[in-house]
Amino acid sequence: MTMECRIYTESLTALMDGELPPDDTKTIRAHLLVCRSCDAEYRSLLFSYNLVGNIQLIDSQPAAWTVIENRIRTAREKRGFLRRLLFPNIWVPVGALGTLVLVAASVFWFIPSQNKSDTQAMQQILRSYIQERNREFGDGAVRVVNYNPFRDNNRRPKGNPFKTE
């Protein structure tokens, strides 16, 4: 058997199955006409192929489809029951989802607005404090002064209490 024969032998099954490209089919067929050993191998494979191909196929039981259909219907009913149990009405989960979205949105909206109102209240306190402080100057005019509203004026003076004069 030549190298060429070995290559062709590998393709004999594909040739038999009609799985070779037309050019390869032509080449191998031409080779089979001149090569006795490859032709014998081909015939031998074809013989067993035909034998195997003639094996009787078995038939399924007549009730097989009924069994399959029943199993499909049962599975479907089970799935339907679970769905009804978990989601009795399609609008229930939709409504629940909508409510959830609304709650989440209002929470996000409320938190910054509360911060804003806190800031405004603080500004108002400061402004009134400044006005009150300015009134102490006697002219009633509102002045902007560098004043620390948080300073404790009643603080005891610094000094060493143990120091003797």
Binding site: A14, S44, N50, V52
Partner: peptide, 30 residues
């Protein structure tokens, strides 16, 4: 797949040939 199919066919052919002995390849079978 192509290579496996070929090897499988050759193996099956050899086994059938082994069981059938001289009857293998009788032309009246196919």
């Amino acid at each position: 797949v192509k290579s496996d199919i070929h090897r499988a066919r050759v193996e099956v052919r050899d086994k059938i040939k082994e069981y059938l002995g001289d009857d293998y390849g009788m032309s009246n079978l196919y």
